[in-house]
Computed example of a mutant assay.
Amino acid sequence: MFNIKDGVLASVAAIAAGFAAIAGGLPPLVVMSAVYLAATMTLITLVDLRRLLIPDIASLPAIPLGLIAASLAQGVDTFSVPTENWLGAVAGPAFLYAVNFFYRKVRRRDGLGMGDVKLIAATGAWAGASLLPYVLLLACFAALIAVALLYWRKRGTQAIGLTTPIPFGAFLAPATFVVWMAAQWSIAEGWNPSF
């Protein structure tokens, strides 16, 4: 599933995220979280692009680790996960599952894989419910641009159609990291991360 190239690219992303977090003045626990999240989302992106599959071994551990990171980011002595993150870990997958359910009723086939549903649970655990719309908006916008470019490139040969599979996780994973990181910098600057 993962290969050496995936590991190298994930390591580069993790190191870059760590340096960016340190340069942004983020606390050590947030720096470690950024390193983990960058590596994991990079691995998910690469595998989904190549195999149209989001590996459970990458996405499922990210759910409890996101809840733990959210708890540790509060900086209090007691361990309690913010309601915002619990809600995100539940509402995100419920929303995507409902979208797929209704799509299946209309089109008689799945429109999303369950890997996307598990990945949005991890996204919700890390970013919280209030940031999920921003993650989805960024991921959908990036996917639409990619599809438009792919269509333009292949228009004379084998144009993409309504049944062409799109690796949505390859857009959702980077969007998760970008929005989470922006929220961390906002918190460090004293801004409201729920935009």
Score class of each variant (00 low, 15 high):
20 A>K: 13
20 A>C: 12
20 A>G: 14
20 A>N: 14
21 A>C: 03
21 A>R: 06
22 I>F: 05
22 I>R: 15
23 A>D: 09
23 A>Y: 11
23 A>T: 13
23 A>R: 13
24 G>S: 12
24 G>M: 11
25 G>Y: 07
26 L>K: 08
27 P>H: 11
29 L>C: 01
29 L>V: 05
30 V>Y: 01
30 V>C: 08
31 V>N: 02
31 V>Y: 03
31 V>Q: 10
32 M>Y: 06
32 M>I: 10
32 M>N: 04
33 S>Y: 11
33 S>R: 11
33 S>P: 03
34 A>W: 05
34 A>C: 09
35 V>A: 01
35 V>W: 02
35 V>T: 04
35 V>L: 05
36 Y>Q: 07
36 Y>H: 11
37 L>M: 04
37 L>T: 08
38 A>Q: 14
38 A>H: 07
38 A>R: 12
38 A>P: 15
39 A>G: 12
40 T>G: 03
40 T>V: 09
41 M>K: 02
41 M>E: 00
42 T>S: 14
42 T>R: 13
42 T>I: 08
42 T>Q: 13
43 L>V: 14
43 L>P: 07
44 I>Q: 07
44 I>K: 04
46 L>P: 13
46 L>N: 14
46 L>Y: 10
46 L>R: 15
47 V>T: 12
47 V>G: 05
48 D>A: 06
48 D>R: 02
49 L>R: 09
50 R>G: 10
51 R>E: 14
51 R>P: 08
52 L>I: 09
52 L>N: 11
52 L>H: 10
53 L>E: 14
53 L>W: 12
54 I>P: 12
54 I>Y: 03
54 I>T: 07
54 I>V: 09
54 I>M: 09
56 D>C: 15
56 D>G: 15
57 I>Y: 03
57 I>H: 04
58 A>I: 06
58 A>H: 09
58 A>D: 06
58 A>W: 05
59 S>Q: 02
60 L>G: 09
60 L>N: 05
60 L>T: 02
60 L>S: 07
60 L>R: 02
61 P>L: 01
61 P>C: 01
62 A>K: 00
63 I>K: 09
63 I>A: 02
63 I>L: 06
64 P>D: 00
64 P>C: 10
64 P>I: 02
64 P>T: 02
64 P>A: 03
64 P>E: 10
65 L>P: 12
65 L>I: 10
65 L>M: 13
66 G>N: 11
66 G>F: 00
67 L>R: 00
68 I>C: 01
68 I>F: 09
69 A>N: 08
69 A>Q: 03
70 A>I: 10
70 A>W: 07
71 S>Y: 14
73 A>W: 10
73 A>Q: 14
73 A>K: 13
73 A>P: 05
